[in-house]
């Protein structure tokens, strides 16, 4: 007699919890060969709204942590991913329709990418900031600061490496994120959210919505309490990208534009994915007795 398996319900990840979509909608996720894998929650505009509230609430605490602490937490996420490597390999293999061997390479690259970004936490300020020799008796220092709440439309194709490569640079510097995962390949993102929940990342720092960037994206792009948006998830859809960029102008969000096509995420990243979501603050103080 075969055992009846217990099937997993895939939910959203908002404010450190795993709610269903408030809309009650879910959608069918198919594997690379078109076979049914699971139902995923279909995030609505209200889920996006709730996620922004959670991200805003988490921003002060997260950005206020020491860089060393954020580095440790991101490294911890990498550790737990490593620990759950088989589960990620399975998720990536099914989501992207590739074999376990290539999927394993994707997972390894994703973990390595996370480690790479984790190390930046307490170095980016030194690389980007500097003292300015103003012509007067003033101490003058410029330092990078996180821009705030960042909406990330994660890549559609690269379900894990692309996700990690867009989320890690946002949060390592102290931003909080509302992420819309790949629509067709959401399972690695869900697994990733389970890792976040069991690592030391505070609730609300990363919120992951499974669903359609084309429907949720405009709400995030137009949201007046979102400070920046990464449009990577609408790569190759210029009309939609333009619409989102126009909406983002309402509160002058910092926009990381969508490329014409999804990049090869195995390439070594530059600093752009971090610097696009950083502000420079310059503080002056007199030097005197």
């Amino acid at each position: 007699m075969t055992r009846l398996d217990v099937r997993k319900t895939y939910k959203l990840y908002i404010d450190g919890a795993f709610p269903r979509s408030e809309s009650g909608h879910s959608y069918e996720v198919l594997d690379g060969k078109g076979r049914f894998v699971a139902n995923a929650a279909l995030a609505s505009r209200k889920d996006a709204r709730d996620a922004v509230v959670a991200a805003r609430k988490a921003f002060g605490g997260w950005s206020g942590r020491t860089a060393y602490n954020r580095a440790q937490i991101l490294y911890r996420v990498a550790e737990i991913m490593e620990d759950r490597r088989p589960q990620f390999v399975d998720a990536v293999a099914r989501a992207e329709g590739i074999g376990d061997g290539p999927a394993g390479k994707v997972v390894d690259a994703s973990i390595d990418r996370l480690v790479w970004y984790a190390g930046w936490a307490d170095k980016i300020t030194q690389v980007l900031g500097n003292a300015n020799p103003v012509a007067g008796p003033f101490f003058n220092l410029s330092t990078p600061e996180p821009t705030g709440v960042v909406a990330v439309l994660a890549p559609q194709g690269s379900s894990l490496l692309g996700l990690v490569s867009t989320v890690a640079p946002v949060i390592v510097t102290g931003n909080t994120a509302v992420v819309v995962s790949s629509y067709a390949r959401p399972l690695p993102a869900v697994t990733f959210s389970e890792v976040l929940a069991t690592s030391d990342v505070p609730g609300g720092v990363v919120n992951i919505l499974t669903g359609d960037a084309a429907t949720v994206g405009p709400w995030l792009a137009g949201h007046m309490d979102v400070n920046a948006i990464d449009l990577g998830g609408v790569a190759g859809r210029p009309a939609l990208a333009t619409e989102l960029e126009v909406a983002a102008a309402d509160n002058l969000k910092r926009v990381r534009r969508a490329p014409a096509a999804e990049p090869d995420w195995t390439d070594e990243p530059d600093l752009g994915a971090m610097t696009d979501f950083l502000e420079t603050k310059t503080v002056w103080h007199p030097i005197g007795l």
Binding site: N132, V134, G136, N140, S142, T280
Partner: peptide, 10 residues
């Protein structure tokens, strides 16, 4: 201080 500007200061 206030309203100080300098070419070296972003």
């Amino acid at each position: 201080t206030f309203n100080k500007f300098d070419p070296t200061s972003p």
